[in-house]
Design a protein around this nucleic acid. Structure first.
Ligand SMILES: Nc1nc2c(ncn2[C@H]2C[C@H](O)[C@@H](COP(=O)(O)OP(=O)(O)OP(=O)(O)O)O2)c(=O)[nH]1
Ligand SMILES: [Mg+2]
Ligand SMILES: [Mg+2]
Ligand SMILES: [Zn+2]
Length: 587
DNA sequence: GCCGTTTTCGGCCCGACTGTTTTCAGTCG
């Protein structure tokens, strides 16, 4: 029998995490201890969020290094070693003999957990979604002991819901939907306060649903309003503190409603993340306190100590309040206890944008329009960085055209005294790591960007070599969208980021945080790794192809925050003379 | 299965909503 865990060579982090999750699910179905089950899921989440391939970690530090991954203990470290070394995991395969893959797959349906999946499998001998659908049509499911007519209906709805929508959506797509509902809630006289919460408030690059919080003295009125807004397609559940709806595009929206003096505790709870909450509550518990969404309490007396504001919740534990963007249980709780939270970069720190296209290549607007947009954003500078000639499909500029553009920019710079237009170009890194132009052209430019636009399927060695050569080119200042991923469309190319970060730090080459909402590349965790382990510096760029795109800077800044970056880490927070000085250091 | 300035054993966050249940399990946040 062909198993996914077999003979596939070294597992990616994602594959290893999937296997750990599936083991957790199988143990869950087998009625194992919930703590063991949780341990597997926790280890899976930890492996999934690593910034380095586990195979590399293992090669460098052996089992000991695997053991040091949070949530991975001696036992799982050995299992991962087996998996990395042989491409197989006998323990996983043994469990699979008892529980077929298709049974754990039933658990993707909202409303079907380990117990229902097990009953469906054992009672009806059903393990696939198709079989389940026919069993529902024949009304066999409602006769499973403990199930009923409504259970069957809900499973059917669950399947429909899953088929319509089960992917995470871009933060930028969820954001306006969320704020439209928040705004409408705020307009209701019976609503005291309303806010976004969950991953959307933490500004995660994608969100699984929209989480909203409101406070009110009349919670039932709020729920009645919420479940009848025009966006509603289906009401999943509604009670006096919590309701869930599905909106027209298939997305789920959860609303929690609490009393006004509980707002801070509820916001803390509902902002999460889940690991952050669990860690925080664990600390409270060890101090004889209890935290829930209604407040902080003394465990033995249930006396309420606070919860009006988030600061009160964290303050009761003698902690600073971590910004929502970093509440991922990746060190922020410890930092908040030491009172040494990072001073994260703010949007106001941004003084300009280095990556802007115009109608000289594949942009929509002319130079002046882009400059006017930059001025309206209060920027001190903007760099025009059109594509170069090798990227024909993007209307790349020849060196003659570039010369013309430089003259046009010189003219515009005469006209403005409140903004400086820097000259630049986005060059294409070819298969040999060379770019469109040599020093005689590039030396005329203030800022040179290099990026990969093709050959994504090359070997890791080749891709890495190309990139590192470009980084070593003394004229290239910024590497744009370093991993090439496009959320929901294209995975990152297979490149050795360790080599890229090392070379960038050694040469004084800035790594881009491309703020385009479906790129956000480098991503949050990579930014943090590149800075902390390598000392890299960054530029947050919008890669605007039309003036309005320059507003994407906001998504770049929040992603930088999620990567724990401070103002000092980011080139476009400096004054122009200082930027020029830093750019010249490389040449 | 993981983990440790009170522990290497004994804990592991805490609660809402639903359906099928005569008292709570399952799923989800
Ligand atoms: N204490 C506690 N809080 C939880 C738990 N599950 C969820 N929460 C809180 C923290 C989450 O951020 C918040 C919203 O839950 P979601 O499932 O929507 O997660 P979140 O929005 O973080 O991520 P998402 O993008 O929706 O997958 O509810 C839990 O098991 N325990
Ligand atoms: Mg959510
Ligand atoms: Mg939610
Ligand atoms: Zn570009």
């Amino acid at each position: 029998m062909e198993q996914k865990a077999q003979g596939q060579g070294e597992p990616t982090n994602e594959r290893a995490a999937e296997i750990l999750d599936e083991i957790g699910d199988m143990l869950d179905i087998l009625d194992e201890s919930t703590f063991r089950v949780r341990a597997y899921h926790k280890a899976a989440a930890s492996v999934r969020s690593l910034t380095r391939p586990i195979a590399d970690i293992y090669r460098e530090g052996g089992v000991k290094a695997l053991d040091e991954i949070p949530g991975v203990g001696s036992h799982t470290a050995l299992r991962l070693e087996e998996l990395i070394a042989t491409g197989r995991l006998p323990y996983y395969e043994e469990l699979r003999e008892k529980i077929p893959e298709s049974v754990t797959e039933l658990m993707v349906i909202p409303g079907i957990g380990p117990k229902k999946a097990k009953k469906i499998y054992e009672t009806l001998g059903i393990s696939t979604l198709d079989e389940l659908m026919s069993a529902i049509t024949e009304h066999k499911v409602e006769h499973i002991p403990g199930f009923g007519r409504k259970t069957e209906e809900n499973i059917l709805r669950g399947i429909r819901q899953y088929e319509k929508m089960h992917e995470r959506i871009l933060l930028s797509q969820a954001y306006p939907i969320a704020h439209e509902i928040v705004d409408s809630l705020r307009r209701q006289p019976f609503v005291d306060r309303a806010n976004t919460a969950g991953s959307l408030r933490r500004m995660k690059e994608t969100v699984g649903d929209i989480d909203l919080l409101a406070s009110s003295e009349q919670p039932l009125k709020v729920m009645e309003y919420f479940t009848t807004i025009p966006q509603v397609a289906y009401i999943l559940a509604t009670g006096e503190t919590k309701s869930s709806i599905i909106v027209k595009n298939g997305l789920q929206v959860d609303l929690r409603v609490v009393a006004p003096n509980e707002y801070g505790a509820a916001l803390q709870y509902f902002t999460g993340s889940k690991p952050h909450n669990i860690h925080l509550r664990d600390i409270a518990k060890k101090r004889g306190l209890k935290i829930n969404e209604y407040g902080v309490f003394e465990s033995d007396t249930d006396r309420r100590l606070g919860g009006r504001t988030e600061e009160e919740v964290y303050g009761t534990l003698d902690m600073e309040t971590p910004p929502p963007a970093i509440r991922e249980d990746k060190g922020e709780i410890e930092a908040a206890m030491r009172r040494s939270l990072p001073r994260l970069i703010r949007h106001e720190d941004i003084k300009g944008d280095f990556h802007i296209h115009t109608n000289w290549s594949d942009g929509i607007n002319d130079i002046e329009t882009m400059v006017e947009m930059a001025r309206s954003l209060g920027y001190a500078f903007v760099t025009i960085s059109d594509h170069a000639e090798k990227l024909r499909i993007a209307g790349g500029l020849t060196k003659e055209e570039l010369q013309e553009q430089l003259e046009a920019i010189a003219g515009l710079n005469e006209k403005y005294d409140d903004i400086e237009i820097l000259t630049g170009m986005e060059t294409n890194i070819d298969n040999d790591g060379e770019v469109d132009f040599g020093p005689e052209v590039l030396r005329k430019l203030d800022v040179v960007i290099g990026s990969i636009h093709g050959g994504f399927r090359q070997s890791k060695e080749q891709l890495t070599r190309r990139m590192v050569r470009a980084i070593e080119n003394p004229y290239i200042n910024i590497i744009a969208h370093p991993t090439g991923r496009i959320l929901g469309q294209r995975p990152p190319y297979d490149i050795d980021l360790h080599e890229v970060f090392k070379a960038a730090a050694a040469t004084g080459t800035f790594l881009e945080l491309n703020a385009y909402p479906n790129r956000l590349d480098l991503k949050d965790d990579h930014l943090r790794e590149a800075r902390d382990a390598y000392g890299c510096k960054f530029a947050i760029d919008t890669d605007a192809h039309v003036a309005g795109n320059m507003l994407y800077m906001e998504y770049g800044v929040v992603t930088a925050q999620r990567g724990w970056l401070t103002k000092e880490d980011v080139l476009n927070t400096y004054e122009v003379p200082e930027i020029r000085r830093m750019l010249r250091l490389k040449r």
